[in-house]
Design a protein around this nucleic acid. Structure first.
Lengths: 198, 198
DNA sequence: TTTTATTGATTGAACGTTCAATAAAAAAAT
DNA sequence: ATTTTTTTATTGAACGTTCAATCAATAAAA
Protein backbone atom coordinates (compact mmCIF):
# COMPACT_ATOMS: atom_id res chain seq x y z
CA UNK A 1 0.00 0.00 0.00
CA UNK A 2 2.77 2.48 -0.76
CA UNK A 3 1.45 5.99 -1.09
CA UNK A 4 3.31 9.26 -0.99
CA UNK A 5 3.40 11.14 2.30
CA UNK A 6 3.28 8.11 4.55
CA UNK A 7 6.00 9.28 6.91
CA UNK A 8 4.02 11.28 9.50
CA UNK A 9 1.28 8.64 9.53
CA UNK A 10 3.66 5.74 10.05
CA UNK A 11 5.67 7.60 12.69
CA UNK A 12 2.55 8.24 14.74
CA UNK A 13 1.32 4.67 14.25
CA UNK A 14 4.61 3.29 15.48
CA UNK A 15 4.81 5.58 18.51
CA UNK A 16 1.28 4.62 19.52
CA UNK A 17 2.11 0.94 18.96
CA UNK A 18 5.20 1.31 21.14
CA UNK A 19 3.14 2.58 24.06
CA UNK A 20 0.65 -0.24 23.54
CA UNK A 21 3.43 -2.81 23.59
CA UNK A 22 5.02 -1.36 26.73
CA UNK A 23 1.62 -1.32 28.38
CA UNK A 24 1.10 -4.94 27.40
CA UNK A 25 4.38 -6.61 28.35
CA UNK A 26 6.72 -3.93 29.70
CA UNK A 27 9.75 -2.27 28.16
CA UNK A 28 12.01 -5.27 28.70
CA UNK A 29 9.91 -7.54 26.50
CA UNK A 30 8.99 -4.94 23.93
CA UNK A 31 10.59 -6.17 20.70
CA UNK A 32 10.51 -4.48 17.32
CA UNK A 33 8.38 -7.35 16.03
CA UNK A 34 5.77 -6.86 18.70
CA UNK A 35 5.61 -3.15 18.00
CA UNK A 36 5.34 -3.82 14.28
CA UNK A 37 2.54 -6.31 14.81
CA UNK A 38 0.63 -3.75 16.90
CA UNK A 39 0.98 -1.19 14.11
CA UNK A 40 0.13 -3.73 11.41
CA UNK A 41 3.41 -3.26 9.56
CA UNK A 42 6.66 -5.17 9.21
CA UNK A 43 9.59 -4.93 11.58
CA UNK A 44 11.95 -3.47 9.01
CA UNK A 45 9.98 -0.26 8.76
CA UNK A 46 11.11 0.81 12.23
CA UNK A 47 14.72 1.13 11.17
CA UNK A 48 13.56 2.93 8.05
CA UNK A 49 11.67 5.67 9.87
CA UNK A 50 13.52 5.89 13.19
CA UNK A 51 16.97 4.55 12.38
CA UNK A 52 16.48 1.70 14.82
CA UNK A 53 14.67 0.65 17.96
CA UNK A 54 16.40 3.22 20.16
CA UNK A 55 15.27 6.03 17.87
CA UNK A 56 11.67 4.90 18.17
CA UNK A 57 11.89 4.69 21.96
CA UNK A 58 13.35 8.17 22.14
CA UNK A 59 10.62 9.55 19.88
CA UNK A 60 8.02 7.89 22.07
CA UNK A 61 9.38 9.50 25.21
CA UNK A 62 9.51 12.84 23.43
CA UNK A 63 5.85 12.57 22.58
CA UNK A 64 4.86 11.73 26.12
CA UNK A 65 6.73 14.75 27.41
CA UNK A 66 5.23 16.97 24.73
CA UNK A 67 1.73 15.78 25.60
CA UNK A 68 2.31 16.64 29.25
CA UNK A 69 3.68 20.06 28.44
CA UNK A 70 0.68 20.76 26.22
CA UNK A 71 -1.81 19.57 28.82
CA UNK A 72 -0.39 22.07 31.31
CA UNK A 73 -0.01 24.90 28.80
CA UNK A 74 -3.61 24.64 27.57
CA UNK A 75 -4.97 24.94 31.08
CA UNK A 76 -2.74 27.84 32.01
CA UNK A 77 -3.74 29.83 28.95
CA UNK A 78 -7.42 29.28 29.67
CA UNK A 79 -7.13 30.74 33.15
CA UNK A 80 -9.88 33.05 34.44
CA UNK A 81 -7.71 34.90 36.96
CA UNK A 82 -3.97 35.33 37.14
CA UNK A 83 -3.49 34.41 40.79
CA UNK A 84 -0.63 32.11 41.83
CA UNK A 85 -3.18 29.65 43.16
CA UNK A 86 -4.98 29.44 39.81
CA UNK A 87 -1.70 28.81 37.97
CA UNK A 88 -0.64 26.10 40.38
CA UNK A 89 -4.04 24.45 40.18
CA UNK A 90 -3.73 24.41 36.40
CA UNK A 91 -0.33 22.74 36.73
CA UNK A 92 -1.83 20.09 39.00
CA UNK A 93 -4.73 19.46 36.62
CA UNK A 94 -2.38 19.23 33.66
CA UNK A 95 -0.15 16.72 35.41
CA UNK A 96 -3.11 14.47 36.13
CA UNK A 97 -4.39 14.65 32.61
CA UNK A 98 -1.19 13.50 30.96
CA UNK A 99 -3.20 12.95 27.79
CA UNK A 100 -4.54 9.81 29.39
CA UNK A 101 -3.43 9.04 32.92
CA UNK A 102 -4.97 5.63 32.48
CA UNK A 103 -3.80 3.10 29.91
CA UNK A 104 -0.61 2.81 27.88
CA UNK A 105 0.80 6.27 28.62
CA UNK A 106 1.00 5.66 32.37
CA UNK A 107 3.09 2.50 32.24
CA UNK A 108 5.21 3.87 29.44
CA UNK A 109 6.00 6.91 31.54
CA UNK A 110 7.21 4.87 34.48
CA UNK A 111 9.20 2.56 32.23
CA UNK A 112 11.05 5.55 30.80
CA UNK A 113 11.54 6.99 34.24
CA UNK A 114 13.56 3.93 35.23
CA UNK A 115 15.28 3.60 31.89
CA UNK A 116 16.39 7.23 31.86
CA UNK A 117 18.78 6.59 34.73
CA UNK A 118 21.21 4.89 32.38
CA UNK A 119 20.47 6.37 28.98
CA UNK A 120 21.95 9.87 28.68
CA UNK A 121 19.49 11.05 26.02
CA UNK A 122 16.42 9.97 27.96
CA UNK A 123 17.95 11.37 31.13
CA UNK A 124 18.34 14.74 29.47
CA UNK A 125 14.69 14.76 28.37
CA UNK A 126 13.43 13.68 31.74
CA UNK A 127 15.57 16.24 33.50
CA UNK A 128 14.37 19.16 31.42
CA UNK A 129 10.85 18.14 32.32
CA UNK A 130 11.50 17.79 36.04
CA UNK A 131 13.14 21.16 36.21
CA UNK A 132 10.31 22.83 34.38
CA UNK A 133 7.72 21.46 36.79
CA UNK A 134 9.79 22.64 39.73
CA UNK A 135 10.62 26.01 38.26
CA UNK A 136 7.03 26.73 37.21
CA UNK A 137 5.78 25.92 40.69
CA UNK A 138 8.57 27.90 42.28
CA UNK A 139 7.82 30.98 40.24
CA UNK A 140 4.18 31.00 41.30
CA UNK A 141 4.87 30.30 44.95
CA UNK A 142 7.34 33.16 45.01
CA UNK A 143 4.50 35.50 44.20
CA UNK A 144 2.83 34.51 47.45
CA UNK A 145 5.57 33.78 49.99
CA UNK A 146 9.26 34.41 50.78
CA UNK A 147 11.86 32.77 48.48
CA UNK A 148 13.00 30.03 50.85
CA UNK A 149 9.48 28.96 51.67
CA UNK A 150 8.54 29.14 48.00
CA UNK A 151 11.38 26.83 47.06
CA UNK A 152 10.42 24.30 49.69
CA UNK A 153 6.77 24.48 48.74
CA UNK A 154 7.64 23.88 45.10
CA UNK A 155 9.88 20.95 45.94
CA UNK A 156 7.27 19.40 48.17
CA UNK A 157 4.34 19.83 45.80
CA UNK A 158 6.39 18.48 42.89
CA UNK A 159 7.24 15.45 45.00
CA UNK A 160 3.61 14.95 45.95
CA UNK A 161 2.46 15.12 42.32
CA UNK A 162 5.07 12.60 41.19
CA UNK A 163 4.43 10.41 44.22
CA UNK A 164 0.67 10.30 43.70
CA UNK A 165 1.26 9.49 40.10
CA UNK A 166 3.85 6.81 40.86
CA UNK A 167 1.70 5.07 43.44
CA UNK A 168 -1.23 5.21 41.05
CA UNK A 169 0.74 3.66 38.22
CA UNK A 170 1.97 0.85 40.45
CA UNK A 171 -1.30 0.10 42.20
CA UNK A 172 -3.23 -2.80 40.69
CA UNK A 173 -6.40 -0.70 40.65
CA UNK A 174 -4.70 1.99 38.57
CA UNK A 175 -4.56 5.68 39.33
CA UNK A 176 -7.64 7.27 40.80
CA UNK A 177 -7.16 10.63 39.12
CA UNK A 178 -10.00 12.35 40.96
CA UNK A 179 -8.64 11.35 44.34
CA UNK A 180 -5.11 12.33 43.33
CA UNK A 181 -6.26 15.77 42.21
CA UNK A 182 -8.18 16.17 45.45
CA UNK A 183 -5.15 15.33 47.59
CA UNK A 184 -2.86 17.60 45.62
CA UNK A 185 -5.27 20.52 45.80
CA UNK A 186 -5.83 19.91 49.47
CA UNK A 187 -2.08 20.06 50.00
CA UNK A 188 -2.00 23.31 48.10
CA UNK A 189 -4.60 24.72 50.50
CA UNK A 190 -2.45 23.67 53.42
CA UNK A 191 0.64 25.27 51.93
CA UNK A 192 -1.09 28.60 51.48
CA UNK A 193 -2.72 28.39 54.89
CA UNK A 194 0.47 27.38 56.65
CA UNK A 195 2.52 30.17 55.12
CA UNK A 196 -0.08 32.74 55.96
CA UNK A 197 -1.19 33.77 52.51
CA UNK A 198 -4.74 34.47 51.66
CA UNK B 1 38.30 -22.68 46.92
CA UNK B 2 35.45 -25.01 47.78
CA UNK B 3 34.75 -24.95 51.47
CA UNK B 4 31.71 -26.23 53.28
CA UNK B 5 29.00 -23.71 54.13
CA UNK B 6 29.53 -21.40 51.18
CA UNK B 7 25.85 -21.01 50.38
CA UNK B 8 24.92 -18.04 52.58
CA UNK B 9 28.17 -16.26 51.69
CA UNK B 10 27.71 -16.71 47.95
CA UNK B 11 24.05 -15.75 48.05
CA UNK B 12 24.89 -12.49 49.76
CA UNK B 13 27.81 -11.83 47.42
CA UNK B 14 25.59 -12.34 44.39
CA UNK B 15 22.79 -10.15 45.70
CA UNK B 16 25.26 -7.36 46.43
CA UNK B 17 26.82 -7.82 43.01
CA UNK B 18 23.38 -7.62 41.41
CA UNK B 19 22.74 -4.23 42.99
CA UNK B 20 26.16 -3.04 41.91
CA UNK B 21 25.50 -4.13 38.33
CA UNK B 22 22.08 -2.46 38.22
CA UNK B 23 23.63 0.68 39.65
CA UNK B 24 26.31 0.56 37.00
CA UNK B 25 24.41 -0.13 33.78
CA UNK B 26 20.74 -0.51 34.66
CA UNK B 27 18.55 -3.58 34.88
CA UNK B 28 18.20 -3.93 31.10
CA UNK B 29 21.92 -4.44 30.61
CA UNK B 30 22.55 -6.44 33.74
CA UNK B 31 23.66 -9.85 32.46
CA UNK B 32 24.54 -12.89 34.52
CA UNK B 33 28.12 -12.56 33.38
CA UNK B 34 28.37 -8.99 34.59
CA UNK B 35 26.94 -9.95 37.96
CA UNK B 36 29.31 -12.89 38.19
CA UNK B 37 32.29 -10.71 37.35
CA UNK B 38 31.30 -8.25 40.10
CA UNK B 39 31.13 -11.10 42.59
CA UNK B 40 34.37 -12.64 41.33
CA UNK B 41 32.75 -15.97 40.47
CA UNK B 42 31.61 -17.73 37.31
CA UNK B 43 28.25 -17.25 35.64
CA UNK B 44 27.12 -20.82 36.19
CA UNK B 45 26.98 -20.38 39.94
CA UNK B 46 23.93 -18.17 39.67
CA UNK B 47 21.76 -20.98 38.39
CA UNK B 48 23.22 -23.22 41.06
CA UNK B 49 22.23 -21.01 43.98
CA UNK B 50 19.18 -19.19 42.66
CA UNK B 51 17.84 -21.50 39.97
CA UNK B 52 18.45 -18.83 37.35
CA UNK B 53 18.70 -15.13 36.77
CA UNK B 54 15.07 -14.48 37.70
CA UNK B 55 15.56 -16.16 41.05
CA UNK B 56 18.50 -13.90 41.82
CA UNK B 57 16.57 -10.79 40.85
CA UNK B 58 13.68 -11.81 43.06
CA UNK B 59 16.01 -12.47 45.98
CA UNK B 60 17.60 -9.07 45.46
CA UNK B 61 14.24 -7.31 45.60
CA UNK B 62 13.33 -9.30 48.70
CA UNK B 63 16.47 -8.08 50.43
CA UNK B 64 15.81 -4.46 49.57
CA UNK B 65 12.32 -4.71 50.99
CA UNK B 66 13.58 -6.47 54.09
CA UNK B 67 16.20 -3.79 54.65
CA UNK B 68 13.53 -1.09 54.44
CA UNK B 69 11.23 -2.92 56.83
CA UNK B 70 14.06 -3.33 59.31
CA UNK B 71 15.12 0.31 59.06
CA UNK B 72 11.59 1.39 60.02
CA UNK B 73 11.12 -1.27 62.70
CA UNK B 74 14.37 -0.43 64.48
CA UNK B 75 13.41 3.23 64.78
CA UNK B 76 9.90 2.52 65.97
CA UNK B 77 11.13 0.19 68.70
CA UNK B 78 13.61 2.78 69.94
CA UNK B 79 10.92 5.40 70.41
CA UNK B 80 11.01 7.66 73.48
CA UNK B 81 7.29 8.43 73.54
CA UNK B 82 4.35 6.58 72.01
CA UNK B 83 2.68 9.56 70.32
CA UNK B 84 1.33 9.25 66.76
CA UNK B 85 3.73 11.97 65.71
CA UNK B 86 6.75 10.10 67.03
CA UNK B 87 5.72 6.93 65.21
CA UNK B 88 5.17 8.74 61.94
CA UNK B 89 8.49 10.53 62.25
CA UNK B 90 10.16 7.16 62.77
CA UNK B 91 8.50 5.88 59.60
CA UNK B 92 9.78 8.90 57.69
CA UNK B 93 13.31 8.45 59.01
CA UNK B 94 13.25 4.75 58.19
CA UNK B 95 12.13 5.38 54.65
CA UNK B 96 14.98 7.79 54.07
CA UNK B 97 17.55 5.46 55.51
CA UNK B 98 16.76 2.55 53.22
CA UNK B 99 20.02 0.95 54.34
CA UNK B 100 21.77 3.37 52.05
CA UNK B 101 19.66 5.90 50.20
CA UNK B 102 22.69 6.71 48.14
CA UNK B 103 24.39 4.26 45.83
CA UNK B 104 23.32 0.91 44.37
CA UNK B 105 20.21 0.40 46.50
CA UNK B 106 18.52 3.54 45.20
CA UNK B 107 18.72 2.74 41.51
CA UNK B 108 17.92 -0.90 42.12
CA UNK B 109 14.78 0.12 43.94
CA UNK B 110 13.51 2.23 41.06
CA UNK B 111 14.42 -0.43 38.51
CA UNK B 112 12.32 -2.97 40.39
CA UNK B 113 9.52 -0.46 40.76
CA UNK B 114 9.18 -0.31 36.98
CA UNK B 115 9.81 -3.97 36.44
CA UNK B 116 7.19 -5.02 38.97
CA UNK B 117 4.42 -3.75 36.72
CA UNK B 118 4.77 -6.79 34.50
CA UNK B 119 6.22 -9.48 36.74
CA UNK B 120 3.54 -10.91 39.06
CA UNK B 121 5.97 -12.03 41.75
CA UNK B 122 7.71 -8.66 41.99
CA UNK B 123 4.35 -6.94 41.86
CA UNK B 124 3.18 -8.95 44.84
CA UNK B 125 6.27 -8.00 46.85
CA UNK B 126 6.02 -4.36 45.93
CA UNK B 127 2.34 -4.27 46.75
CA UNK B 128 2.73 -5.77 50.19
CA UNK B 129 5.25 -3.07 50.91
CA UNK B 130 3.14 -0.20 49.62
CA UNK B 131 0.18 -1.31 51.64
CA UNK B 132 2.20 -1.60 54.79
CA UNK B 133 3.52 1.93 54.48
CA UNK B 134 -0.01 3.23 53.94
CA UNK B 135 -1.58 1.16 56.66
CA UNK B 136 1.07 2.03 59.24
CA UNK B 137 0.63 5.71 58.55
CA UNK B 138 -3.14 5.40 58.54
CA UNK B 139 -3.17 3.67 61.90
CA UNK B 140 -1.18 6.45 63.53
CA UNK B 141 -3.11 9.29 61.93
CA UNK B 142 -6.33 7.71 63.14
CA UNK B 143 -5.16 8.21 66.68
CA UNK B 144 -5.10 11.96 66.07
CA UNK B 145 -7.91 12.77 63.63
CA UNK B 146 -11.20 11.48 62.18
CA UNK B 147 -11.03 8.38 59.93
CA UNK B 148 -11.59 10.12 56.60
CA UNK B 149 -8.98 12.77 57.28
CA UNK B 150 -6.60 10.11 58.57
CA UNK B 151 -6.92 8.12 55.37
CA UNK B 152 -6.27 11.15 53.23
CA UNK B 153 -3.32 12.22 55.36
CA UNK B 154 -1.82 8.74 55.08
CA UNK B 155 -2.29 8.64 51.32
CA UNK B 156 -0.79 12.08 50.91
CA UNK B 157 2.23 11.51 53.15
CA UNK B 158 2.93 8.15 51.52
CA UNK B 159 2.85 9.86 48.13
CA UNK B 160 5.16 12.60 49.35
CA UNK B 161 7.68 10.09 50.71
CA UNK B 162 7.72 8.08 47.50
CA UNK B 163 7.79 11.24 45.40
CA UNK B 164 10.73 12.75 47.26
CA UNK B 165 12.52 9.49 46.92
CA UNK B 166 11.72 9.12 43.24
CA UNK B 167 12.83 12.63 42.35
CA UNK B 168 16.00 12.08 44.36
CA UNK B 169 16.81 8.85 42.58
CA UNK B 170 16.30 10.45 39.17
CA UNK B 171 18.12 13.69 39.85
CA UNK B 172 21.71 13.75 38.62
CA UNK B 173 22.86 15.09 41.98
CA UNK B 174 21.31 12.15 43.80
CA UNK B 175 18.93 12.27 46.73
CA UNK B 176 19.55 14.93 49.34
CA UNK B 177 18.33 12.85 52.27
CA UNK B 178 18.49 15.68 54.78
CA UNK B 179 16.40 17.97 52.65
CA UNK B 180 13.92 15.19 51.92
CA UNK B 181 13.52 14.42 55.61
CA UNK B 182 13.03 18.10 56.31
CA UNK B 183 10.29 18.46 53.72
CA UNK B 184 8.49 15.33 54.86
CA UNK B 185 8.60 16.38 58.50
CA UNK B 186 7.48 19.86 57.60
CA UNK B 187 4.52 18.36 55.76
CA UNK B 188 3.72 16.32 58.84
CA UNK B 189 3.64 19.53 60.88
CA UNK B 190 1.23 21.03 58.39
CA UNK B 191 -1.03 17.98 58.50
CA UNK B 192 -1.30 18.09 62.28
CA UNK B 193 -1.77 21.85 62.29
CA UNK B 194 -4.34 21.81 59.49
CA UNK B 195 -6.43 19.14 61.16
CA UNK B 196 -6.35 20.86 64.47
CA UNK B 197 -4.41 18.38 66.53
CA UNK B 198 -1.83 19.41 69.01
C1' DT C 1 8.00 3.81 -16.69
C1' DT C 2 9.71 5.77 -12.64
C1' DT C 3 9.49 6.62 -7.92
C1' DT C 4 8.37 5.58 -3.26
C1' DA C 5 7.04 2.56 0.41
C1' DT C 6 7.24 -1.86 2.37
C1' DT C 7 8.36 -6.58 3.13
C1' DG C 8 10.50 -10.63 5.37
C1' DA C 9 14.18 -14.00 5.10
C1' DT C 10 18.82 -13.73 6.54
C1' DT C 11 22.74 -12.54 9.41
C1' DG C 12 25.48 -12.07 13.28
C1' DA C 13 25.78 -10.98 17.96
C1' DA C 14 24.34 -11.62 22.75
C1' DC C 15 22.22 -14.00 26.25
C1' DG C 16 20.77 -17.63 29.97
C1' DT C 17 21.21 -22.26 30.99
C1' DT C 18 23.35 -26.68 31.21
C1' DC C 19 26.60 -30.17 32.50
C1' DA C 20 30.79 -32.84 32.26
C1' DA C 21 35.19 -31.80 34.06
C1' DT C 22 37.97 -29.99 37.76
C1' DA C 23 39.82 -28.55 41.98
C1' DA C 24 39.92 -27.95 46.66
C1' DA C 25 38.58 -29.06 51.27
C1' DA C 26 36.93 -32.60 54.57
C1' DA C 27 36.75 -37.20 56.16
C1' DA C 28 38.53 -41.68 56.48
C1' DA C 29 42.10 -44.89 56.41
C1' DT C 30 46.80 -46.10 57.00
C1' DA D 1 51.26 -37.65 60.44
C1' DT D 2 50.58 -38.97 56.00
C1' DT D 3 48.02 -40.74 52.34
C1' DT D 4 43.74 -41.98 50.16
C1' DT D 5 38.91 -41.40 49.45
C1' DT D 6 34.81 -38.89 49.43
C1' DT D 7 32.22 -34.88 49.27
C1' DT D 8 31.28 -30.27 47.93
C1' DA D 9 31.87 -26.14 45.34
C1' DT D 10 32.98 -24.19 41.10
C1' DT D 11 34.19 -23.61 36.40
C1' DG D 12 33.61 -22.46 31.49
C1' DA D 13 32.81 -24.18 26.89
C1' DA D 14 28.87 -25.60 24.18
C1' DC D 15 24.00 -25.19 23.00
C1' DG D 16 19.80 -23.35 21.72
C1' DT D 17 17.15 -19.29 21.63
C1' DT D 18 16.05 -14.59 20.83
C1' DC D 19 16.59 -10.25 18.94
C1' DA D 20 17.78 -5.94 16.08
C1' DA D 21 19.39 -4.69 11.87
C1' DT D 22 20.07 -5.28 6.94
C1' DC D 23 18.97 -5.34 2.13
C1' DA D 24 17.57 -7.37 -2.15
C1' DA D 25 13.05 -8.22 -3.88
C1' DT D 26 8.39 -6.59 -4.47
C1' DA D 27 4.31 -4.02 -5.06
C1' DA D 28 1.63 -0.13 -5.43
C1' DA D 29 1.05 4.65 -6.63
C1' DA D 30 2.59 8.61 -9.50
Amino acid sequence: MPKVGMEPIRRQQLITATMAAIDEVGLAETTVMRIARHAGVSAGIISHYFGGKDGLLEATMRQILTDLTDAVAVRRHALADDSPRAHIEAIIEGNFDRTQVTGPAAKTWLAFWASSMHKPMLQRLQNVNDRRLYSNLCHQFRRAMPPTEARNSARALAAMIDGLWLRGALSPEGLNADQARLLARSYLDQLFAYHGCK
